[in-house]
């Protein structure tokens, strides 16, 4: 089961990496945006791996704590980065 999780996470990582690259070609991203996106995505993927691992070992509390600490942090970072990118885009247009 963990092997399948790694496999899916690998595909997801590659897909998300490709999408970010494609996006950056159309809308060039600065260092802050790149850092925020990569960190956010890594944290979310890490939390998924942590959660699955914890459920498999039978400690659901560790799974929920992992999702809360890592996943939630990742989502917040991605949200802030998204807002930063869009705000910056608007500023540029002005």
């Amino acid at each position: 089961m963990m092997g399948l999780t790694w496999y899916i996470l690998g595909i997801l990582s590659a897909l998300l990496g490709y999408l970010m690259y494609e996006y950056s070609l159309k809308h060039p991203l600065d260092r802050i945006s790149w850092t925020g996106l990569v960190l956010g995505v890594v944290l979310v993927l890490f939390s998924i791996a942590w959660g699955v691992g914890s459920v498999l070992e039978g400690v659901p509390r560790a799974a929920s704590m992992g999702l809360l600490l890592f996943g939630f942090s990742g989502v917040i970072i991605l949200t802030l980065t998204g807002r930063y990118i869009t705000t910056k885009g608007k500023d540029t247009k002005i």
Partner: peptide, 8 residues
Amino acid sequence: YNKPDFWH
């Protein structure tokens, strides 16, 4: 230190 063998 007492943990089962999981990657995390």
